[in-house]
């Protein structure tokens, strides 16, 4: 399963970004190979529909779980229609901490 985490910078000690559509980077973590990679968010400066475009991009890459501080209402509909699970951490967390919690399952 591939997990997408909205990141404010492209390293593992960065915080989870508070906004899904307009974050600078996405961290893609594969639970089978246990490898993480970073991709730049190409749609972050779009005036409209940035969240939807980002969501469709991630769905194309086979993402099954998305983590961010906040999801917009349109993004929620897109993810629900494509069976993607969404997670919102209630406290500020680093990406490394979230990935560790999946490793230690």
């Amino acid at each position: 399963m591939i997990i997408a985490i909205a990141a404010s910078e492209n390293h593992l000690k960065a915080n989870v970004d508070p906004h899904f559509g307009r974050c600078d980077w996405f961290c893609l973590y594969d639970t089978e190979t246990k490898k993480s990679s970073f991709i730049e968010n190409p749609v972050r400066y779009h005036q409209l529909q940035a969240g939807c475009d980002a969501a469709l991009l991630l769905i194309e890459k086979g993402v099954k779980m998305a983590i961010a501080g906040r999801f917009g209402s349109k993004v929620i509909e897109v993810f629900k229609a494509n069976n993607v699970q969404m997670i919102i951490p209630q406290t500020q967390q680093t990406i490394a901490k979230i990935i560790n919690s999946f490793i230690s399952q």
Partner: peptide, 18 residues
């Protein structure tokens, strides 16, 4: 785990982390 999450048809009704 202090998280909010949604569930889909393919995931069960449990916390995805713990």
């Amino acid at each position: 785990c202090q998280i909010n999450f949604t569930v889909t048809d393919s995931t069960g009704n449990f916390c995805p982390i713990c």
